[in-house]
Design a protein around this nucleic acid. Sequence first.
DNA 1: GCATGATTTAACCAATTGGTTAAATTTGCT
DNA 2: AGCAAATTTAACCAATTGGTTAAATCATGC
Lengths: 204, 204
Amino acid sequence: MNAAKDTTEDKILEAATQVFVQKGMEGARMQEIADAAGINKALLHYYFRSKDKLFDAIFSKIVSFAFPKIGQILQAELPFVDKVEQAIDTYLDLLLKHPYLPGFILKEVNRDPSVFFKLVMKHGFKLEPIFQVMQEAMDRGELIRMKPEHLVVNVVGLCVFPFAAKPVISFVAFNEDPEATQAFFEERREEVKQFVIRAIQPIN
Amino acid sequence: MNAAKDTTEDKILEAATQVFVQKGMEGARMQEIADAAGINKALLHYYFRSKDKLFDAIFSKIVSFAFPKIGQILQAELPFVDKVEQAIDTYLDLLLKHPYLPGFILKEVNRDPSVFFKLVMKHGFKLEPIFQVMQEAMDRGELIRMKPEHLVVNVVGLCVFPFAAKPVISFVAFNEDPEATQAFFEERREEVKQFVIRAIQPIN
DNA sequence: GCATGATTTAACCAATTGGTTAAATTTGCT
DNA sequence: AGCAAATTTAACCAATTGGTTAAATCATGC
């Protein structure tokens, strides 16, 4: 995810991202981040004065990375169903490459929502345009009538939840077989698309 | 959730449940649990020798509570669609009463899956009977053909995810208006049922 | 060569925290 | 009353951890 320019600051950001994402803000240790970056604790504090400052920097990058510009896809001149397929594809691509993101973000957002709120305000992330597109598609009869909020939550939940619950799914449904688990997650792409389409398509 | 028998041990379990669920294993403080139980730290360790022991006791109760016997509903003599509706109703009832459970369980399972695995093995929780019921319903043409694993994950995700992501949803979609947020969560009951039914019903 | 910033070393500090201990006090029971 | 268990008090310990500091060393460009 990080463009490893190999400067010390980038090495720190890369290492910190890895450690923070895996262990969370509270579980991460400054010493471990320093080790992962191949430097020592003093230098780590020399670059980022405090753990909070370092975490904020990482969390900001991760949030803006994990809330991609789905908006553009939805604005295109396409049948709504195609837009939904594209959006799901884009998002599952991202999640398959970064499966730890959901667990990390959910954990941190529940620990201290205010940090997340500030970021969303700064990046000016809004749902209204997405709702707008959905309303218009409903008016054209391209999808069943429903509250856009629910549709967004349903689609995001179907995409994101399995990653946040991966250990549970892997153990309960696949006896911890890593290949079966991996196959399941790759199937999700088609599965979610078909499931959502069947759920939103009007009965002609 | 706890049957407050008012004995000291129950007071501890009640307080510990509250603190653990809100702050997680790592964020919880033994002193805070003692305070919440109206006792002191020495007595807390007198009843439960260590934080780990206390946490295991709470986590075990919570997991067996949050993985309810949906199996019984699915075994009944009913059209499959009705069973699904009942299962969703039962589960969303539980979640609306205990909205912190998803965030807590997901956090702890990602922190240390082994504890969860042992519990699942001890309680002998299996998905096969549920898969069986689904397969039979598919054979009878009562629902579309799909892998049962995906159907279970889809339904659980649609129910659970919004609770784990509540702060995000409340802020991004409802501008943190608590009443609008609450209304949205209560709507989920009908919304999820209709969404799932549309997605799994065969086109006659 | 020299000045400046980057980096290391290593010791240190203060706060937090899980856990212990021992003695005193209270409570409940017979 | 008297015994045992429950509970409090209060001090203490050891480990962890975020953060600091000061001096030494290294790298680099002017």
